[in-house]
Write a protein that binds this DNA or RNA. Structure first.
Lengths: 225, 225
DNA sequence: CATAGACAATAGTATTGCTATCATTAATGA
DNA sequence: TCATTAATGATAGCAATACTATTGTCTATG
């Protein structure tokens, strides 16, 4: 196990939550609460009550709850990129690496990194159901300029490079990368809540989802079309 | 051109907006406003001011703005299914039908249906950027029980049937259907606002997106994996 | 020991989301 | 034609949300 210090873009916060007990508590309990009640009904007031501090104190760390969500989800993507490097850095076979990536996307790889105050299972759930809300807004462009999506874009870029080591001529490496990542989350969510949109059996979701995703990746990468 | 009367699930509204001038005005201007300012900063108060009525009157039609968005987006999916039937009903070749579907998804087919008070281009934009918000909530399950996603699920189901006429043995027809639909919207949005997540040239987005989508559909349907 | 920084405590404001009441007008039909 | 009902307008109000500002205490550091 390795200790990681994930440093995120200072645009995401007013005061770095990693640098204080209260800050770490804010992160920890935000994850719990957003997971439990959903992002829409999560408020700073409720959070403050939950961790026995005041609304004003939370506002010293984050401009608003949207930024807090950004912080959490950026943490996730950064951490994913660490893991991606960890698993694909040494292995030279792109097929194996693509399969490792897919296991990573469905959250089935052993995690090598420690992070005391973050519940990763809940974090994964939050990312699955809330991450779209970060960019589907009227202020995407400003947020993008402020580098709020950098970790996500970086990860997708690395995935697209992996695709190109598998097939140097592939023309849709970036689109396939982002589609694969999005699809992993969406199909998992659908399998759970809107199962008629999928072909997966609830008992073996992850296995079947992985086979769908690798079917997708390799079919497309090998395609004659 | 044909006149259509799209009748939607009464769970979506309190009073049917199609049945009155004010109701149709609410729909019309909601589409305008959500398109222009985004769903988060759209409020019933602003809408009321815009169409010279009162907040209370709007509440007589829709329980809240989330339901209004549901109504609008369900209208879209129902209309899409009409068009899908229209274009694929007579042609017998599944390849042609899949290509027609893809043109439909990127909004490039001539529309056969009239609807005076609905700006379809803006509607398409809204669906692209806001539709995920309908199901990524903590109340998906209740909403699903109230049949709020039926038009979307119906369309996906018909698409999956089309895939099975092309390849009767294909195991992922439903997942491919929902993935294709979602991907069409996401990639279009990305191409516009987060282009590094795609491989498309802004000048020819639709052409290239269509080729990506048909590459995806046929690669997967013909796959050996 | 002074001082700066972190936080708690409290208060206050504008906006949002929603409900209730009552008056006015338009449509329907007895 | 009158009575009734439905639809809307006008207005009020309330609880929750999303913030901002001020003041005081405590604590670590220099």
């Amino acid at each position: 196990m390795m200790e990681i210090q994930i440093r995120l873009n200072p645009n995401l916060y007013i005061k770095d939550p990693e640098q204080s007990e209260l800050g770490r508590n804010i992160i920890k309990h935000s994850i719990e609460m957003i997971h439990d009640v959903g992002f829409e009904s999560f408020t700073f007031k409720k959070l403050a009550a939950n961790i026995n501090t005041t609304e004003a104190s939370v506002y010293r760390y984050f401009e608003n709850k949207h930024r807090l969500l950004s912080y959490i989800i950026n943490w996730y993507w950064t951490w994913m990129e660490y893991q991606f490097s960890f698993y694909t850095g040494t292995v030279k076979d792109p097929v194996q690496n693509i399969n490792a990536l897919i296991s990573l996307l469905v959250f089935e790889l052993d995690d090598q990194f420690i992070s005391a105050h973050i519940n990763k299972d809940k974090l994964y759930n939050i990312v699955t159901s809330e991450s779209n809300k970060l960019y589907f807004t009227h202020h995407v462009e400003e947020d993008n300029k402020a580098r709020m999506f950098k970790p996500y874009k970086d990860l997708c870029h690395r995935i697209s490079q992996l695709f190109n080591t598998y097939n140097a001529k592939y023309r849709f490496a970036h689109s396939l990368a982002s589609t694969l990542v999005e699809t992993a989350h969406h199909q998992l969510f659908f399998a759970h809540y809107l199962p008629s949109l999928t072909d997966f059996d609830k008992r073996k979701i992850k296995t079947e989802l992985k086979s769908f995703l690798s079917h997708m990746a390799f079919s497309m990468l090998d395609s004659k079309y």
